[in-house]
Design a protein around this nucleic acid. Structure first.
Length: 423
RNA sequence: GGAGGACUGGCCGAGUGGUUUAAGGCAACAGUUUUGAAAACUGUCGUGGGUUAACGCCUACCUGGGGUUCGAAUCCCUAGUCCUCCGCCA
């Protein structure tokens, strides 16, 4: 959440920064105006409250001495109506201001390139050479169906479109990847967690998914519970509304979870195959740390995710997302894209973001430094990796002419020694 | 699902309508003492918001929300969480 003090002291700077996103900054004037009202009403109502408190103590004293308290009681009655009206107006102003602030995206890091859309993202790195096939590579959906191990029809029968049933070797591959990824991150100093797959509204507000992106979530009936769209939500909220001793930093978490997304508005996109599902598995990394450490944590997470792709021998590139394409809560995001032969292009498999203090302000995650000063923490999150899309990449990049799929060497131990997925 | 109990600062814990402006202890930090440490002693010791050049002053917060009252940690309603017992259950 935007720091209102920052808006007060550097209005033009904030406006310029947010203007490079696809964001209408006219709302900032409204917020500033509400803030003036907030201050005026606060001063007015608190002054009256102070007087009422003083008079109440006087009444107590008088009553104790069996004296007449009618005078001060009359004064209180006169002040109270005004005070209550001002307090009520203040609540209204605060609610309005809060509602607007919750929809303001994060300020961008200076190293985030300015650009209009995904075409302006900056390629930061490229690793591996896409394989040259001596036959025409099949896409993963056809490949999996021919193997009898990807069953979209059954999933549609059980639930609907954008779901899948895995069977046999591919089911095992998915499970192997989860374990492989978790083990890898643990080796880099991350602590494995397993969290609830349902979170309440407050948690989703904390990470920035609510209120703005409600239509992307699955909500449960009869309460304020939502299926998590990523375990970033639960991992980040582990420290919500806490003041942490700086000596405990950094918190580095990794977790597997299923992720649930309504994919509203993406009709017609990636309709075939595993790329875009309502439910997919993901291994996530989250860091909660001091501001000075967050660039280091960001690099640590990027490196850890890259190394997984390298250990799996999957060609990829890294993009520094531009201002027009970066997510709501992020100040700097690196996307990793893996090579998908059937599409002849790189596709997103990980997104690693430094959110600065944006989520920490929403979720009230603070820390106390050695001098005893309290400040907001920094939070970061990144996929490490999207498991279903890793399956896509392995099936396609490691496919063989006869329709079988080679298992990447690093994964063989996780597959119980199996070197090939075949019918 | 039913019945009962609890929730106070970083932690423990006193407080059941008016010097509570939350006692006391622990932990932490600073100082005195010490060759150094420990101990002892002294002091500091929550978070927001408003106001101020600053020192300060004011205000809110005793799990969240609402209410009663001139005045609420304290009384009432409500939600949450935890504990105990009963029932059901992987």
């Amino acid at each position: 959440m935007l720091d209102i003090k920052r808006l007060e002291t550097d209005f033009e700077g904030v406006k310029k920064n947010l203007g490079t996103r696809n964001f209408d900054t006219s709302v900032l004037n409204e917020i500033l105006d509400l803030n003036k009202q907030r201050k005026t009403l606060t001063t007015a109502s608190e002054t009256k409250k102070a007087e009422i408190n003083r008079l109440s103590r006087e009444i107590g004293e008088l009553k104790k001495n069996k004296a007449d308290a009618a005078g001060p009681m009359g004064q209180v009655a006169a002040l109270k109506a005004d005070m209550e009206k001002e307090a009520k107006d203040l609540d209204t102003v605060l609610a309005k201001q809060q509602a607007l602030l919750l929809n303001i995206p994060n300020l961008l890091d200076p190293s985030t390139p300015v650009g209009k859309d995904e075409n302006d993202n900056q390629e930061a790195k490229r690793w591996g050479t896409p394989r040259t096939f001596d036959f025409t590579p099949v896409d993963h959906a056809d490949l999996g169906e021919k193997l009898g191990m990807l069953d979209f029809e059954s999933a549609a029968k059980i639930t609907g479109a954008r779901f899948v049933v895995y069977k046999g070797g591919i089911a095992r591959l998915e499970r192997a990847l989860i374990n492989f990824m978790l083990d890898h991150h643990m080796g880099k100093g991350f602590t494995e967690m397993m969290t609830p797959f349902i979170a309440h509204e407050r948690s989703l507000v904390g990470t920035g998914n609510l209120p703005k992106f409600k239509d992307q979530l699955f909500k449960l009936e009869d309460n304020d519970w939502y299926l998590i769209p990523t375990s970033e939500v639960t991992l980040t909220n582990l420290k919500r509304e806490q003041i942490i001793d700086e000596a405990e930093f950094p918190f580095l978490y990794t977790a597997y979870s299923p992720c649930f997304r309504s994919e509203a508005g993406s009709h017609g996109k990636d309709v075939k195959g595993l790329i875009r599902m309502h439910k997919f598995n993901k291994v996530e990394m989250v860091a909660i740390c001091a501001p000075s450490y967050s660039p280091t944590a960001h690099q640590l997470m990027i490196d850890s995710a890259c190394e997984i792709l390298q250990r799996l021998g999957l060609p990829y590139r890294a993009l520094n997302l531009c201002s027009g394409d970066i997510g709501f809560a992020s100040q700097k995001t690196i996307d990793l894209e893996v090579w998908v032969p059937s599409q002849n292009k790189y596709r997103e498999i990980s997104s690693i973001s430094n959110c600065g203090d944006f989520q920490a302000r929403r979720a009230n995650i603070r820390f106390r430094n050695k001098e005893g000063k309290v400040d907001f923490a920094h939070t970061l999150n990144g996929s490490g990796l999207a498991v279903g899309r890793t399956v896509v990449a392995i099936l396609e990049n490691y496919q063989q002419k006869d329709g079988s799929v080679q298992v990447p060497e690093a994964l063989v131990p996780y597959m119980g020694g199996l070197k090939e997925i075949k019918k």
